[in-house]
């Protein structure tokens, strides 16, 4: 169960971003998880809810986008979805496939509340 440790890393990053942008609070945190992210979305969600208060981010809502596992064939260049962890090209059956999406724990964006529009006036 390493969801908690990854969520701590996420919350650290989010808290740093909030500070950098001089926001008051974080409303939303959007992440992307795929079949090879190595984490279970439900566990990520509950770890987030449990740990967010420790980072003064109690208001933040976690939005998880579940994405498919996508790969590119090094032989024919095809882009395709990998189903059932079968790492073969959909078109040419080559096994030289490179995962391009769906193997990371990716922070997409965060939505913050600001008192004034600091950056526009800066």
């Amino acid at each position: 169960m390493h969801e908690a440790s990854l969520v701590r890393t996420l919350l650290d990053k989010v808290a740093t971003l909030l500070k950098e942008h001089q926001g008051e609070a974080v409303e939303e945190v959007c992440i992307e998880l795929g079949p090879l992210s190595g984490v279970e979305p439900l566990l990520v969600q509950s770890a987030f809810e449990m740990l967010a208060p420790q980072y003064s981010l109690s208001d933040a809502k976690l939005i998880i986008h579940e994405i498919p596992l996508e790969a590119k064939c090094r032989d024919c260049g095809a882009l395709f979805e990998i189903k059932n962890f079968r790492f073969r090209c959909e078109l040419c059956e080559s096994s030289a496939v490179q995962v391009v999406r769906g193997d990371e724990f990716r922070l997409l964006n965060i939505t913050i509340r600001q008192a004034v529009d600091n950056e526009a006036s800066a």
Binding site: L6, E104, F105, R106, N109, I110, T111, R113
Partner: peptide, 17 residues
Amino acid sequence: MNTKTIPVGQDILSPAK
């Protein structure tokens, strides 16, 4: 009070990597 979306697009493990 206004809200703002900050794009990140980063693997959270990238510093560790």
